[in-house]
Amino acid sequence: MTKRSADSASDQLNRVLIALAWLSDGQPHRLRDLATRVQVDERRLRSDLLAIASRTDDESLGALVGSRLSLDDRTVQLHLSLFRRPMALSPRESSAIELGLALIQHEWPRAEAAVAQSVRRRVSRLTTSPVTSSSNAPIHAIAEGMTEVARQSLQALRGALKTSRKARLQYQSFSATSASARTVHPFGLVLVRGMWYLVAHCERVRALRIFRLDRMVSVRVLASPSAKRGDEELRATLERGRAIVKGATERLRVRYSRKVAPWIREDFDVLEQEDGSVVVEHPLRDDAWALRHVMAYGPDALVIEPTRIRDEVACRFKAIARPRPRAAKRRSS
């Protein structure tokens, strides 16, 4: 779970205070074990401890720690009566947890979201009281985006995954006019840009498929056990932050104008063109998806191939641009 990027003074202060709390029992600790506790690598921990012990000004914390610290290659020991516990969560740390809890709460069925609410209240008890009004105001928030049906589907699928059981989905694919039943062996859930997908073996097509959570009408967990997943297959479903089932042989080639090229570069691998436009080759599995994807860009996207999609898009645009007069329609009928 631990990830670490750029280090800051607050990161270092936090680490030192946590390390001091663990060391405050006065017992010798193996550096490696302490590093695991503090969730930092051994070298950085050693460097933190040396940094604070090297501050030997009179009466400073460095002097206090330095005179009582014993640090060799493998072990560290400190006799200190201060900082026997870590500092309470800072408002920012609490806010980070709060954001994560808000995300989880958005995903739970409303009836069960009360648990998340209760956890949020208790986390606030672990937080230092903000001293100024400006530090009190939250500066980050997450937009809610799941329907109640999607929340219930997600809960059911988590249950199926936990107990390794098959699930029965009523699923309405992108262009279908009604839902159809699918029996699946759930392999995992993938969250991509705020959208959950189920990666599963579909018994109907006898192949790996990805199901969007917001297209599930209902989910029922079955009693029968599900097949084991293949990690290789799962990894193959994630391509540059997108959930994609590999194997689409046909390609949709689209040229996007210079105007929308910056947004396209954010999401796709592009072939740059001399005039500033970009070309993208999308795996083509669904003509209806292709039609709608391209048309959303209006005059800023042009299908290069395949010809059938290109002709259909041109035909649809023509129909919108030159509607038949209503009177003429009546006469013809």
Binding site: M1, T2, K3, R4, S5, A6, S8, S10, D11, N14, R15, I18, V38, Q39, P86, M87, A88, L89, S90, R92, E93, S94, S95, A96, I97, E98, L99, G100, L101, L103, I104, V115, A116, V119, V123, L126, H140, I142, L191
Partner: peptide
């Protein structure tokens, strides 16, 4: 749930939120 929340906060594409979530778990 708190640990999951911290993991989710780390994946928001915001470095300082990710660091704060890690620091919170270190303390807990």
């Amino acid at each position: 749930m708190i640990l999951r929340a911290a993991a989710r906060a780390q994946d928001l594409g915001h470095p300082s939120i990710a660091r704060d979530a890690v620091a919170a778990v270190q303390k807990l």
